[in-house]
Design a protein around this nucleic acid. Structure first.
Lengths: 209, 209
DNA sequence: TTTGTAAATAACCAATCAGTTATTTAAAGG
DNA sequence: CCTTTAAATAACTGATTGGTTATTTACAAA
Protein backbone atom coordinates (compact mmCIF):
# COMPACT_ATOMS: atom_id res chain seq x y z
CA UNK A 1 0.00 0.00 0.00
CA UNK A 2 2.77 2.41 0.90
CA UNK A 3 5.27 1.49 -1.81
CA UNK A 4 4.09 1.58 -5.39
CA UNK A 5 7.73 1.17 -6.42
CA UNK A 6 8.39 0.01 -9.93
CA UNK A 7 10.29 -3.05 -11.05
CA UNK A 8 13.86 -2.27 -12.05
CA UNK A 9 14.56 -2.33 -15.75
CA UNK A 10 17.18 0.16 -16.89
CA UNK A 11 16.93 -0.79 -20.57
CA UNK A 12 13.17 -0.35 -20.62
CA UNK A 13 13.32 2.90 -18.66
CA UNK A 14 15.92 4.37 -20.99
CA UNK A 15 13.94 3.30 -24.04
CA UNK A 16 10.72 4.67 -22.61
CA UNK A 17 12.35 8.06 -21.93
CA UNK A 18 13.80 8.15 -25.47
CA UNK A 19 10.44 7.40 -27.07
CA UNK A 20 8.72 10.02 -24.95
CA UNK A 21 11.45 12.49 -25.93
CA UNK A 22 10.91 11.87 -29.64
CA UNK A 23 7.20 12.57 -29.20
CA UNK A 24 7.69 15.68 -27.06
CA UNK A 25 10.44 17.26 -29.17
CA UNK A 26 8.60 16.60 -32.43
CA UNK A 27 5.36 17.98 -31.02
CA UNK A 28 6.65 21.18 -29.42
CA UNK A 29 10.12 21.71 -30.89
CA UNK A 30 13.30 21.92 -28.81
CA UNK A 31 12.40 25.27 -27.26
CA UNK A 32 8.80 24.33 -26.52
CA UNK A 33 9.54 20.84 -25.21
CA UNK A 34 9.31 20.32 -21.44
CA UNK A 35 11.57 17.95 -19.55
CA UNK A 36 8.89 17.34 -16.92
CA UNK A 37 6.42 16.29 -19.60
CA UNK A 38 8.91 13.84 -21.08
CA UNK A 39 9.44 12.20 -17.69
CA UNK A 40 5.71 12.05 -17.08
CA UNK A 41 5.01 10.59 -20.53
CA UNK A 42 7.74 8.00 -20.02
CA UNK A 43 6.28 7.17 -16.62
CA UNK A 44 9.76 7.67 -15.22
CA UNK A 45 11.27 9.92 -12.63
CA UNK A 46 12.81 13.10 -14.03
CA UNK A 47 16.07 12.29 -12.29
CA UNK A 48 16.48 9.17 -14.43
CA UNK A 49 16.32 11.29 -17.55
CA UNK A 50 19.35 13.24 -16.35
CA UNK A 51 21.01 10.05 -15.18
CA UNK A 52 20.79 8.36 -18.58
CA UNK A 53 21.10 11.30 -20.96
CA UNK A 54 22.78 14.17 -19.11
CA UNK A 55 20.65 17.17 -20.04
CA UNK A 56 17.91 18.39 -22.33
CA UNK A 57 20.15 19.00 -25.36
CA UNK A 58 21.85 15.63 -25.05
CA UNK A 59 18.43 14.00 -24.93
CA UNK A 60 17.43 15.91 -28.05
CA UNK A 61 20.53 14.62 -29.83
CA UNK A 62 19.67 11.06 -28.73
CA UNK A 63 16.18 11.50 -30.18
CA UNK A 64 17.67 12.78 -33.45
CA UNK A 65 20.13 9.87 -33.63
CA UNK A 66 17.28 7.47 -33.06
CA UNK A 67 15.28 9.03 -35.91
CA UNK A 68 18.27 9.00 -38.31
CA UNK A 69 19.13 5.40 -37.48
CA UNK A 70 15.53 4.35 -38.11
CA UNK A 71 15.32 5.85 -41.59
CA UNK A 72 18.77 4.57 -42.57
CA UNK A 73 17.77 1.06 -41.53
CA UNK A 74 14.56 1.31 -43.51
CA UNK A 75 16.51 2.54 -46.54
CA UNK A 76 18.92 -0.36 -46.29
CA UNK A 77 16.09 -2.88 -46.46
CA UNK A 78 15.00 -1.53 -49.83
CA UNK A 79 16.06 -3.97 -52.57
CA UNK A 80 16.37 -2.06 -55.81
CA UNK A 81 18.37 -4.51 -57.90
CA UNK A 82 15.56 -4.55 -60.41
CA UNK A 83 16.10 -4.73 -64.12
CA UNK A 84 14.21 -1.59 -65.03
CA UNK A 85 15.88 1.64 -63.86
CA UNK A 86 12.65 3.63 -64.35
CA UNK A 87 10.89 1.29 -61.98
CA UNK A 88 13.77 1.57 -59.49
CA UNK A 89 13.42 5.35 -59.39
CA UNK A 90 9.67 5.04 -59.01
CA UNK A 91 10.09 2.78 -55.99
CA UNK A 92 12.73 5.02 -54.51
CA UNK A 93 10.49 8.10 -54.68
CA UNK A 94 7.44 6.29 -53.32
CA UNK A 95 9.49 4.81 -50.50
CA UNK A 96 10.72 8.28 -49.51
CA UNK A 97 7.19 9.64 -49.77
CA UNK A 98 5.69 6.86 -47.66
CA UNK A 99 8.41 7.10 -45.03
CA UNK A 100 7.90 10.84 -44.56
CA UNK A 101 4.15 10.36 -44.44
CA UNK A 102 4.35 7.63 -41.80
CA UNK A 103 7.07 9.28 -39.71
CA UNK A 104 6.16 12.96 -39.32
CA UNK A 105 8.29 13.16 -36.17
CA UNK A 106 11.38 12.65 -38.32
CA UNK A 107 10.61 15.77 -40.37
CA UNK A 108 9.77 17.72 -37.25
CA UNK A 109 13.02 16.81 -35.48
CA UNK A 110 15.01 17.74 -38.60
CA UNK A 111 13.26 21.12 -38.73
CA UNK A 112 14.12 21.78 -35.09
CA UNK A 113 17.73 20.79 -35.66
CA UNK A 114 17.97 23.12 -38.65
CA UNK A 115 16.46 25.96 -36.62
CA UNK A 116 19.41 25.44 -34.28
CA UNK A 117 21.88 25.34 -37.17
CA UNK A 118 22.59 21.62 -36.71
CA UNK A 119 24.67 22.25 -33.57
CA UNK A 120 23.73 18.87 -32.10
CA UNK A 121 24.57 16.56 -35.00
CA UNK A 122 27.75 18.54 -35.68
CA UNK A 123 29.04 17.13 -32.40
CA UNK A 124 27.72 13.63 -33.10
CA UNK A 125 30.24 11.18 -34.54
CA UNK A 126 27.42 8.67 -34.76
CA UNK A 127 25.26 10.52 -37.27
CA UNK A 128 28.11 11.80 -39.41
CA UNK A 129 29.11 8.22 -40.20
CA UNK A 130 25.51 7.29 -40.97
CA UNK A 131 25.51 7.93 -44.70
CA UNK A 132 22.40 7.24 -46.68
CA UNK A 133 22.87 4.22 -48.94
CA UNK A 134 20.60 6.01 -51.39
CA UNK A 135 23.30 8.10 -53.02
CA UNK A 136 25.37 5.08 -54.05
CA UNK A 137 22.21 3.22 -55.11
CA UNK A 138 21.22 6.23 -57.19
CA UNK A 139 24.60 6.38 -58.90
CA UNK A 140 24.21 2.80 -60.10
CA UNK A 141 20.58 3.24 -61.18
CA UNK A 142 21.39 6.43 -63.09
CA UNK A 143 24.28 4.72 -64.87
CA UNK A 144 22.08 1.79 -65.84
CA UNK A 145 19.41 4.11 -67.18
CA UNK A 146 21.98 6.06 -69.17
CA UNK A 147 23.39 2.87 -70.69
CA UNK A 148 19.89 1.92 -71.74
CA UNK A 149 19.49 5.40 -73.28
CA UNK A 150 16.38 6.12 -71.19
CA UNK A 151 17.98 8.68 -68.78
CA UNK A 152 19.57 12.00 -69.67
CA UNK A 153 23.32 12.54 -69.44
CA UNK A 154 25.20 14.28 -66.62
CA UNK A 155 22.99 13.62 -63.60
CA UNK A 156 24.60 14.23 -60.21
CA UNK A 157 23.26 11.58 -57.76
CA UNK A 158 23.50 13.98 -54.80
CA UNK A 159 21.44 16.62 -56.61
CA UNK A 160 18.89 14.01 -57.61
CA UNK A 161 18.75 12.68 -54.06
CA UNK A 162 18.01 16.18 -52.77
CA UNK A 163 15.32 16.69 -55.40
CA UNK A 164 13.57 13.45 -54.47
CA UNK A 165 13.68 14.42 -50.80
CA UNK A 166 12.48 17.95 -51.68
CA UNK A 167 9.27 17.02 -53.46
CA UNK A 168 8.32 14.61 -50.67
CA UNK A 169 9.52 16.63 -47.66
CA UNK A 170 7.96 19.97 -48.54
CA UNK A 171 4.43 18.63 -48.84
CA UNK A 172 4.32 16.99 -45.41
CA UNK A 173 6.42 19.59 -43.62
CA UNK A 174 4.15 22.41 -44.82
CA UNK A 175 0.88 20.52 -45.06
CA UNK A 176 -0.94 22.67 -42.49
CA UNK A 177 -0.13 26.11 -43.89
CA UNK A 178 -0.60 24.91 -47.47
CA UNK A 179 -4.04 23.51 -46.60
CA UNK A 180 -5.09 26.90 -45.22
CA UNK A 181 -3.63 28.88 -48.13
CA UNK A 182 -5.17 26.65 -50.80
CA UNK A 183 -8.40 26.17 -48.85
CA UNK A 184 -8.36 22.38 -49.17
CA UNK A 185 -7.41 19.49 -46.94
CA UNK A 186 -4.08 18.22 -48.25
CA UNK A 187 -4.04 15.39 -45.73
CA UNK A 188 -7.07 13.83 -47.46
CA UNK A 189 -6.46 10.51 -49.14
CA UNK A 190 -7.06 11.70 -52.70
CA UNK A 191 -4.95 14.84 -52.32
CA UNK A 192 -2.04 12.77 -51.02
CA UNK A 193 -2.32 10.26 -53.82
CA UNK A 194 -2.49 12.96 -56.47
CA UNK A 195 0.61 14.61 -55.06
CA UNK A 196 2.46 11.31 -54.75
CA UNK A 197 1.90 10.58 -58.42
CA UNK A 198 2.98 14.08 -59.31
CA UNK A 199 6.19 13.73 -57.28
CA UNK A 200 7.12 10.58 -59.19
CA UNK A 201 6.32 12.29 -62.48
CA UNK A 202 8.50 15.32 -61.68
CA UNK A 203 11.53 13.17 -60.91
CA UNK A 204 11.03 10.85 -63.88
CA UNK A 205 10.15 13.76 -66.14
CA UNK A 206 13.48 15.32 -65.30
CA UNK A 207 15.42 12.05 -65.69
CA UNK A 208 13.98 10.71 -68.92
CA UNK A 209 15.49 11.71 -72.25
CA UNK B 1 19.94 63.21 -15.98
CA UNK B 2 17.00 61.60 -14.22
CA UNK B 3 14.72 61.08 -17.20
CA UNK B 4 16.08 59.32 -20.25
CA UNK B 5 12.54 59.21 -21.64
CA UNK B 6 12.15 58.54 -25.34
CA UNK B 7 10.42 60.62 -27.96
CA UNK B 8 6.86 59.49 -28.61
CA UNK B 9 6.29 57.69 -31.90
CA UNK B 10 3.64 54.98 -31.78
CA UNK B 11 4.07 53.95 -35.44
CA UNK B 12 7.83 53.58 -35.09
CA UNK B 13 7.51 51.71 -31.79
CA UNK B 14 5.00 49.27 -33.20
CA UNK B 15 7.13 48.69 -36.28
CA UNK B 16 10.26 48.24 -34.21
CA UNK B 17 8.54 45.63 -32.03
CA UNK B 18 7.25 43.78 -35.09
CA UNK B 19 10.69 43.66 -36.71
CA UNK B 20 12.26 42.45 -33.48
CA UNK B 21 9.53 39.81 -33.23
CA UNK B 22 10.25 38.50 -36.74
CA UNK B 23 13.93 38.14 -35.82
CA UNK B 24 13.28 36.51 -32.45
CA UNK B 25 10.61 34.05 -33.63
CA UNK B 26 12.60 33.02 -36.70
CA UNK B 27 15.76 32.56 -34.64
CA UNK B 28 14.34 30.57 -31.72
CA UNK B 29 10.94 29.34 -32.89
CA UNK B 30 7.67 30.18 -31.14
CA UNK B 31 8.42 28.04 -28.09
CA UNK B 32 12.00 29.26 -27.74
CA UNK B 33 11.27 32.94 -28.37
CA UNK B 34 11.30 35.26 -25.36
CA UNK B 35 9.00 38.24 -25.00
CA UNK B 36 11.58 40.09 -22.90
CA UNK B 37 14.20 39.68 -25.60
CA UNK B 38 11.83 41.05 -28.24
CA UNK B 39 11.17 44.17 -26.14
CA UNK B 40 14.88 44.61 -25.51
CA UNK B 41 15.76 44.16 -29.19
CA UNK B 42 13.05 46.65 -30.17
CA UNK B 43 14.39 49.08 -27.58
CA UNK B 44 10.82 49.32 -26.29
CA UNK B 45 9.15 48.64 -22.99
CA UNK B 46 7.62 45.17 -22.69
CA UNK B 47 4.30 46.73 -21.74
CA UNK B 48 4.06 48.37 -25.18
CA UNK B 49 4.31 44.96 -26.81
CA UNK B 50 1.18 43.86 -24.94
CA UNK B 51 -0.45 47.21 -25.61
CA UNK B 52 -0.05 46.98 -29.38
CA UNK B 53 -0.32 43.23 -29.99
CA UNK B 54 -2.14 41.65 -27.05
CA UNK B 55 -0.03 38.62 -26.25
CA UNK B 56 2.81 36.44 -27.49
CA UNK B 57 0.70 34.37 -29.90
CA UNK B 58 -0.97 37.43 -31.40
CA UNK B 59 2.48 38.92 -31.94
CA UNK B 60 3.59 35.73 -33.64
CA UNK B 61 0.61 35.94 -35.97
CA UNK B 62 1.47 39.57 -36.75
CA UNK B 63 5.02 38.49 -37.62
CA UNK B 64 3.65 35.76 -39.89
CA UNK B 65 1.26 38.16 -41.61
CA UNK B 66 4.12 40.55 -42.17
CA UNK B 67 6.22 37.81 -43.78
CA UNK B 68 3.36 36.62 -46.00
CA UNK B 69 2.52 40.15 -47.12
CA UNK B 70 6.15 40.78 -48.01
CA UNK B 71 6.49 37.76 -50.29
CA UNK B 72 3.12 38.33 -51.93
CA UNK B 73 4.13 41.93 -52.71
CA UNK B 74 7.42 40.74 -54.17
CA UNK B 75 5.59 38.15 -56.27
CA UNK B 76 3.23 40.78 -57.59
CA UNK B 77 6.10 42.91 -58.87
CA UNK B 78 7.31 40.08 -61.08
CA UNK B 79 6.43 40.81 -64.69
CA UNK B 80 6.23 37.55 -66.57
CA UNK B 81 4.37 38.64 -69.68
CA UNK B 82 7.30 37.46 -71.73
CA UNK B 83 6.94 35.77 -75.07
CA UNK B 84 8.81 32.62 -74.22
CA UNK B 85 7.05 30.36 -71.68
CA UNK B 86 10.26 28.44 -70.99
CA UNK B 87 11.94 31.66 -69.99
CA UNK B 88 8.96 32.62 -67.85
CA UNK B 89 9.25 29.39 -65.87
CA UNK B 90 12.99 29.89 -65.53
CA UNK B 91 12.44 33.35 -64.06
CA UNK B 92 9.70 32.10 -61.76
CA UNK B 93 11.92 29.37 -60.30
CA UNK B 94 14.92 31.64 -59.86
CA UNK B 95 12.75 34.30 -58.24
CA UNK B 96 11.44 31.77 -55.71
CA UNK B 97 14.96 30.50 -55.10
CA UNK B 98 16.39 33.96 -54.59
CA UNK B 99 13.55 35.04 -52.32
CA UNK B 100 13.98 32.03 -50.03
CA UNK B 101 17.73 32.54 -49.98
CA UNK B 102 17.44 36.22 -49.06
CA UNK B 103 14.60 35.79 -46.55
CA UNK B 104 15.44 32.82 -44.36
CA UNK B 105 13.15 34.18 -41.63
CA UNK B 106 10.18 33.51 -43.89
CA UNK B 107 11.00 29.80 -44.08
CA UNK B 108 11.66 29.67 -40.37
CA UNK B 109 8.35 31.29 -39.45
CA UNK B 110 6.50 28.92 -41.76
CA UNK B 111 8.21 25.94 -40.13
CA UNK B 112 7.16 27.17 -36.69
CA UNK B 113 3.60 27.69 -37.85
CA UNK B 114 3.46 24.19 -39.29
CA UNK B 115 4.83 22.74 -36.06
CA UNK B 116 1.78 24.32 -34.43
CA UNK B 117 -0.55 22.94 -37.11
CA UNK B 118 -1.23 26.39 -38.57
CA UNK B 119 -3.46 27.39 -35.64
CA UNK B 120 -2.54 31.06 -36.00
CA UNK B 121 -3.21 31.61 -39.71
CA UNK B 122 -6.38 29.53 -39.47
CA UNK B 123 -7.81 32.37 -37.38
CA UNK B 124 -6.39 35.07 -39.67
CA UNK B 125 -8.81 36.45 -42.25
CA UNK B 126 -5.95 38.56 -43.53
CA UNK B 127 -3.69 35.73 -44.69
CA UNK B 128 -6.46 33.53 -46.04
CA UNK B 129 -7.37 36.24 -48.55
CA UNK B 130 -3.73 36.68 -49.50
CA UNK B 131 -3.55 34.27 -52.41
CA UNK B 132 -0.36 33.93 -54.34
CA UNK B 133 -0.67 35.43 -57.81
CA UNK B 134 1.70 32.68 -58.95
CA UNK B 135 -0.96 30.03 -59.44
CA UNK B 136 -2.94 32.11 -61.95
CA UNK B 137 0.30 33.25 -63.61
CA UNK B 138 1.35 29.62 -63.88
CA UNK B 139 -1.95 28.61 -65.45
CA UNK B 140 -1.44 31.14 -68.23
CA UNK B 141 2.22 30.26 -68.80
CA UNK B 142 1.46 26.53 -68.91
CA UNK B 143 -1.31 27.10 -71.45
CA UNK B 144 0.95 29.19 -73.63
CA UNK B 145 3.66 26.52 -73.50
CA UNK B 146 1.17 23.83 -74.39
CA UNK B 147 -0.14 25.83 -77.35
CA UNK B 148 3.43 26.17 -78.57
CA UNK B 149 3.85 22.40 -78.17
CA UNK B 150 6.83 22.83 -75.84
CA UNK B 151 5.11 21.79 -72.57
CA UNK B 152 3.50 18.45 -71.78
CA UNK B 153 -0.26 18.03 -71.48
CA UNK B 154 -2.30 17.90 -68.28
CA UNK B 155 -0.21 20.01 -65.88
CA UNK B 156 -1.98 21.14 -62.69
CA UNK B 157 -0.74 24.67 -61.84
CA UNK B 158 -1.14 24.04 -58.09
CA UNK B 159 0.96 20.89 -58.26
CA UNK B 160 3.59 22.69 -60.30
CA UNK B 161 3.58 25.60 -57.86
CA UNK B 162 4.22 23.21 -54.97
CA UNK B 163 7.01 21.49 -56.88
CA UNK B 164 8.75 24.77 -57.59
CA UNK B 165 8.46 25.75 -53.94
CA UNK B 166 9.66 22.27 -52.90
CA UNK B 167 12.96 22.23 -54.74
CA UNK B 168 13.79 25.73 -53.48
CA UNK B 169 12.43 25.45 -49.93
CA UNK B 170 13.99 22.13 -48.95
CA UNK B 171 17.55 23.18 -49.72
CA UNK B 172 17.51 26.31 -47.56
CA UNK B 173 15.29 24.92 -44.82
CA UNK B 174 17.59 21.90 -44.35
CA UNK B 175 20.89 23.46 -45.34
CA UNK B 176 22.55 22.92 -41.96
CA UNK B 177 21.77 19.22 -41.51
CA UNK B 178 22.43 18.49 -45.19
CA UNK B 179 25.82 20.20 -44.96
CA UNK B 180 26.78 17.95 -42.03
CA UNK B 181 25.45 14.76 -43.64
CA UNK B 182 27.15 15.38 -47.00
CA UNK B 183 30.26 16.81 -45.38
CA UNK B 184 30.28 19.93 -47.53
CA UNK B 185 29.27 23.55 -47.08
CA UNK B 186 26.03 23.95 -49.01
CA UNK B 187 25.91 27.67 -48.21
CA UNK B 188 29.03 28.19 -50.33
CA UNK B 189 28.54 30.24 -53.50
CA UNK B 190 29.30 27.44 -55.96
CA UNK B 191 27.13 24.87 -54.16
CA UNK B 192 24.18 27.28 -54.20
CA UNK B 193 24.64 28.07 -57.87
CA UNK B 194 24.90 24.41 -58.81
CA UNK B 195 21.72 23.65 -56.91
CA UNK B 196 19.89 26.64 -58.37
CA UNK B 197 20.63 25.46 -61.91
CA UNK B 198 19.54 21.97 -60.99
CA UNK B 199 16.26 23.25 -59.55
CA UNK B 200 15.45 25.01 -62.81
CA UNK B 201 16.40 21.91 -64.79
CA UNK B 202 14.15 19.65 -62.69
CA UNK B 203 11.11 21.86 -63.25
CA UNK B 204 11.79 22.42 -66.93
CA UNK B 205 12.73 18.77 -67.40
CA UNK B 206 9.34 17.79 -66.07
CA UNK B 207 7.46 20.42 -68.12
CA UNK B 208 9.08 20.01 -71.51
CA UNK B 209 7.72 17.44 -73.94
C1' DT C 1 22.49 -13.81 4.48
C1' DT C 2 25.30 -9.98 3.75
C1' DT C 3 26.83 -6.23 1.03
C1' DG C 4 28.06 -3.09 -2.84
C1' DT C 5 26.09 -0.86 -6.66
C1' DA C 6 23.05 1.51 -9.27
C1' DA C 7 18.08 2.20 -10.17
C1' DA C 8 14.41 4.87 -8.53
C1' DT C 9 12.05 8.55 -5.80
C1' DA C 10 10.51 12.96 -3.64
C1' DA C 11 11.39 17.31 -2.49
C1' DC C 12 13.69 21.14 -3.55
C1' DC C 13 16.07 25.42 -5.91
C1' DA C 14 17.45 29.60 -8.25
C1' DA C 15 16.38 31.50 -12.53
C1' DT C 16 13.21 32.63 -15.83
C1' DC C 17 8.75 32.96 -17.89
C1' DA C 18 4.42 35.54 -19.86
C1' DG C 19 1.64 38.84 -18.42
C1' DT C 20 -0.03 42.91 -14.98
C1' DT C 21 -0.37 46.99 -11.94
C1' DA C 22 0.41 51.49 -10.88
C1' DT C 23 2.42 55.57 -12.23
C1' DT C 24 4.63 59.15 -14.95
C1' DT C 25 4.96 62.05 -18.90
C1' DA C 26 4.94 63.74 -23.84
C1' DA C 27 2.15 65.95 -26.96
C1' DA C 28 -2.17 67.51 -29.38
C1' DG C 29 -6.56 70.36 -29.04
C1' DG C 30 -8.75 74.04 -27.11
C1' DC D 1 -1.73 78.13 -20.64
C1' DC D 2 -4.66 74.16 -19.22
C1' DT D 3 -6.72 69.70 -19.90
C1' DT D 4 -7.23 65.26 -21.83
C1' DT D 5 -5.44 61.25 -23.90
C1' DA D 6 -2.48 57.72 -24.71
C1' DA D 7 2.50 56.58 -25.03
C1' DA D 8 6.04 55.08 -22.13
C1' DT D 9 8.23 53.25 -17.85
C1' DA D 10 9.54 50.51 -13.68
C1' DA D 11 8.51 47.29 -10.59
C1' DC D 12 6.10 43.36 -9.63
C1' DT D 13 3.63 38.51 -9.65
C1' DG D 14 2.41 33.71 -9.59
C1' DA D 15 3.58 29.93 -12.22
C1' DT D 16 6.94 27.26 -14.55
C1' DT D 17 11.52 26.12 -15.99
C1' DG D 18 15.87 22.90 -16.33
C1' DG D 19 18.54 20.87 -13.22
C1' DT D 20 20.08 19.08 -8.24
C1' DT D 21 20.33 17.10 -3.52
C1' DA D 22 19.56 13.75 -0.37
C1' DT D 23 17.64 9.46 0.41
C1' DT D 24 15.57 4.97 -0.25
C1' DT D 25 15.33 0.52 -2.33
C1' DA D 26 15.79 -3.50 -5.68
C1' DC D 27 18.82 -6.89 -6.93
C1' DA D 28 22.98 -9.57 -8.24
C1' DA D 29 27.43 -11.24 -6.63
C1' DA D 30 29.94 -13.00 -2.74
Amino acid sequence: MKKPTKKRDPEATKRSILEAAVKEFSTYGLGGARVDRIAERADANKRMLYHYFGNKDALFLAALEEAYTDIRNAERKLELENVDPVDSIRRLVTFTWDYYEENPHFLSLLNSENLHKAVHIKRSKHIQLLHSPFVEMLRRIIEKGQNQKVFRARVDPVQLYMSIASVCYFYFSNIHTLSVIFGRDLSAEEAREERRNHAVEVILGYLRV
